[in-house]
Nucleic acid binder design. Structure first.
Length: 476
RNA sequence: GGCGGGGUAGCCAAGUGGUAAGGCAGCGGUCUGCAAAACCGCUAUUCGUGGGUUCGAUUCCCGCCCCCGCCUCCA
């Protein structure tokens, strides 16, 4: 079965076919962060969705070439650096670092390239594109010296968002004080310098200024991936105007279809509203970590809802994610223990161990269906229950356990949620040893107190025939 | 007003023209010194709402209601 994805452009589920001759290389561009502060987990929901997409494509044998831009110059970064009284680059640097740290925490695969808008080569590429657009009558310099895209000369403008440009209403979100523009819908390609920009400016054929927001993605994408991309992703709020503008700019220059599949993820909500910096209802990843949750728990919590459905963020949801992961952790632990058993190699035969291949297909097929994460997770949990049953019944051979662990490895190459918890800390081990002694002496009261103590420290302990088993219950 | 997304058990959430996956929480049982974990059983005669098509609709069609987003630099 083939991979099918919902294309915003057509508003339909389409079969995915990359443009490359080899049929295996996928060129993917993903809109990255504006580094004027730490990204919030709503931003990361988009990056996690893209990560899931990349990982599934790779699991399906595609080679993904991905680029993610870093917007390090815009109104907000300029305002921020001036408020801080430091050069633009000094202001954005910590947020760039923080962004990469957060990607690591959430186990998001790195793109091949993270081009920055202020990179001189990228600025040069943007200027070159603008020059081409001006020469073709698709852009003009207005009386305010800024250069604007002339949307009336690009009839396809509005097709991605399915907007009829005559019916647009201003929401007042952006000030419409640009009377110099020929048409209200024309957007800036190059913004002429003014005092508010301070030391932030570059030279161009139209005078000093800085690039508009949209042009950076067009320039970077074509510079690094070529004129035509397979996939371009972002949040739904990027559909208009950002991605619409990218199409106009890029196709205005190349004359070729810019992107084959446009994928957009729905918003992360808080209290029934979109999480956003301007509403002040956001959590950064750092905020959530500070409450004791781990990166993989956040990863799971943000992945477990389909990318095109709104996801309401709550700490109850975080708790649910933690519990679900604990179920997976315990299952893996049991499989590892069983796979290491020397006995039972012969004679025992598990029905479930032979279903590995089919189940793997079920999981992948769910993902093929426009990344149906819920159906995929259902496959995981159904298999967990079946394997646990076999373990309880003592009919899962060590070889069967190993084959299930191999199955999980494949699954986890996409989900990336396996615990990487290190060993047991010394202070915990001391308590466990003390409890073992108490239990030998049948001092149940003392044993129970130590169990409570361990629980308070985030370690679940349970007693089995082989002795105490420890599970980290929080974090990790 | 235009264009989209969503409304399925206490919560999260799949799904199909034939009578509702999975997770979390809860209850009962097996196991246990007691627990925990695991397993077994129970927990939506019902899928926002009113019509229509149909032998049969949560699923198809029409109308309506509610929530959320975008409508010119928000992922």
């Amino acid at each position: 079965m083939s991979l099918r994805l919902f294309n915003t452009y057509s508003r339909e589920i389409e079969e995915f076919r990359p443009i490359a001759d080899d049929g295996r290389t996928v060129k993917m561009y993903t809109c990255g962060p504006t580094v004027y502060s730490y990204a919030h987990i709503g931003n990361f929901r988009a990056y996690l969705f893209e990560d899931l997409l990349q990982r599934h494509l790779e699991a399906r044998g595609y080679g993904v070439e991905r680029v993610m831009n870093i917007t390090d110059v815009d109104d907000k970064t300029i305002r921020g650096c001036q408020a801080a009284g430091v050069p633009l680059g000094d202001f954005t640097e910590p947020f760039k670092q923080g962004f990469f740290e957060d990607l690591g925490t959430l186990r998001i695969k790195r793109a091949q390239a993270f081009p920055e808008a202020t990179d001189p080569r990228q600025i040069a590429a943007m200027i070159e594109m603008i020059r081409t657009l001006v020469s073709r009558g698709l852009a003009y310099q207005a009386d305010d010296n800024s250069v604007y895209f002339r949307i009336k000369n690009f009839p396809a403008y509005g097709h991605l968002a399915h907007f009829n440009l005559d019916e647009l209403q201003s929401t007042g979100r952006v000030k419409n004080d640009e009377y110099e523009k020929e048409s209200i819908g024309d957007f800036a390609l190059w913004k002429a310098w003014d005092e508010a920009d301070g030391a932030v400016h570059w030279e161009s054929p139209w005078g000093r200024g800085r690039p508009g927001w949209h042009i950076e993605c067009s320039a970077m994408a074509t510079q690094l991936l070529g004129d035509q991309l397979d996939i371009h992703c972002g949040g739904v709020d990027n559909i208009f105007p950002h991605h619409e503008a990218e199409i106009a700019q890029t196709e205005g220059c190349t004359g070729k279809q810019f992107v084959r599949y446009w994928l957009h993820c729905a918003h992360l909500m808080v209290d029934g509203q979109k999480m956003s910096k301007s509403l002040g209802n956001f959590h950064t990843l750092r905020d959530v970590l500070a409450k004791g949750y781990s990166g993989r728990e956040v990863r799971y919590a943000l992945l477990r809802v389909h990318y095109r459905a709104p996801l309401n963020f709550t700490f109850e949801g975080m708790q649910e994610a933690r519990q679900s992961l604990t179920r997976i952790d315990d299952w893996i632990e049991r499989l590892r223990a069983r796979s290491a058993d020397a006995d039972g190699e012969n004679g025992e035969r598990s029905a479930s161990s032979t279903r590995e291949q089919a189940d793997n297909d079920q999981f992948s097929r769910a993902f093929d269906d426009d990344l149906n994460i819920s159906a995929a997770l259902a496959v995981v949990f159904e298999n967990i229950r079946e394997t646990n049953r076999a373990l309880d019944d003592g009919i899962l051979a060590p070889a069967g356990a190993r084959s299930w662990l191999e199955w999980w490895e494949k699954i986890d190459s996409v989900l990336a949620v396996t615990s990487d918890a290190a060993g047991i800390p010394a202070d915990i081990a001391t308590l466990v040893e003390a409890r073992a002694q108490a239990r030998l002496a049948k001092e149940w009261r003392k044993s129970d107190e130590l169990r409570d103590q361990l629980a308070a420290l985030g370690w679940g302990v349970r007693d089995s025939k082989e002795g105490q088993k420890l599970t980290r219950r929080a974090g990790a």
